[in-house]
Design a binder for these strands. Sequence first.
DNA 1: TGCGATTAACTGGTATGGTAGTAGGGTAGG
DNA 2: CCTACCCTACTACCATACCAGTTAATCGCA
Lengths: 229, 229
Amino acid sequence: MQIADVPAGISLGETVGPQVYRLLRRRIIQAELLPGERLSESEVAKTLSVSRQPVREAFIKLSEEGLVQVLPQRGTFVTKISVAAVMDARFVREAIEADVVRLIAESREPDAVDELRRQVVEQKKVPHNDRSAFLRLDELFHHTLAASAGKSYAWNVIESVKAQMDRVRFLSVDDMHVTRLIDQHERIVEAIATNDQAGAEQAMRLHLREILNSLPEIAGSRAELFDRS
Amino acid sequence: MQIADVPAGISLGETVGPQVYRLLRRRIIQAELLPGERLSESEVAKTLSVSRQPVREAFIKLSEEGLVQVLPQRGTFVTKISVAAVMDARFVREAIEADVVRLIAESREPDAVDELRRQVVEQKKVPHNDRSAFLRLDELFHHTLAASAGKSYAWNVIESVKAQMDRVRFLSVDDMHVTRLIDQHERIVEAIATNDQAGAEQAMRLHLREILNSLPEIAGSRAELFDRS
DNA sequence: TGCGATTAACTGGTATGGTAGTAGGGTAGG
DNA sequence: CCTACCCTACTACCATACCAGTTAATCGCA
């Protein structure tokens, strides 16, 4: 969820374009920049004290992820959250991660299981009200799964696709829900530990379908953030 | 495989950046631009009679697909084909398309099956020596599958991921192989027609694993195009 | 002749200038 | 009063200029 602390401004050590991209991406996902809001190349550039050029590159990349819409000679706008887009992204993610856990369960690596178990313990320690801490650990967990399967490229795809889902998850405030998600993590890990490929796959699919439960509710209560649906 | 005819130059009707991107992408996949070759922003710009700006945007997008590598202050180079990258891409593609055909087989749509059968017939008509014609139809076939499942976004992901595989496929010249691929298409369609989800999934997975057979041979015979392996 | 330091040419990254095109407000005409 | 037009202000897109950093070749010296 890219919750990782990002400097508020722009640092000089790295190229500017990607920095602007990550900054805007985080602000869109965290709903600081609201759907429908207008973003101007020159305005953003002025605010961040950079030129329009890197801002433009950031806009292009954001538009490829579906977070903004660039209308030539008209303006660039934060997209409203599209239920269809969220479900499409979820579908792709489920497909990939289902095969990932299958792969891990097949070629068991005790080290990976140990690390995953350790992470689940860590997740349980998180205070129930600290949502962003959990989201960070959740991202780490799924990333570790992909890495354990030796599929770090697949993780890149997931990370890009995840953006749409993360926008929704950030709005989801029900804290009690977190324990449920951690339980699901635990089931995935234990299925992997016992080389239960089908079980691991099913557990993962179930886990990633959780968002389908909360989505309609959120889309209803925060209708102004969603694309007509 | 983006074999679709692309104008040799740059037209004025559309924004320039994406045009340059598609042009270079096609030339890399078709091995007109060879792995290791140096691409200069200014040189490409001069050749196409555009400014460096859109060329730069194209380079960025190509680097995200892993087709070029941008080394700041040093140069931009066409990446060598990486066997690992091809297999990673293949893994992601298999995961997504496996779920796609499952979905179609589940919710049978006679129209889709008819269209797919028609396409298979068309594929059989292609002369055995016209490789690019088959590759076009193959791309259409897989695109139609995704569209039939209502997952056009998933197709976008596949299209991006496919680039690495297409570089290899373009080098694969064994014509006889084509009939085998068409047979596999046929099996996929017939499994869908009988609502055989598991069968369709397995047929698709087998189909997408074909490249694993030819990959080692190609990587051996055209070693200069591949990253040390 | 061989080797090291210097420099000139070139790279991508950033900043800025210029252009076609859109949108919206205000005004003139019916 | 309503409508149609124009004009201004803004947009993203493209082109150009400048910069820091890398590379490689050449020149000077041992």
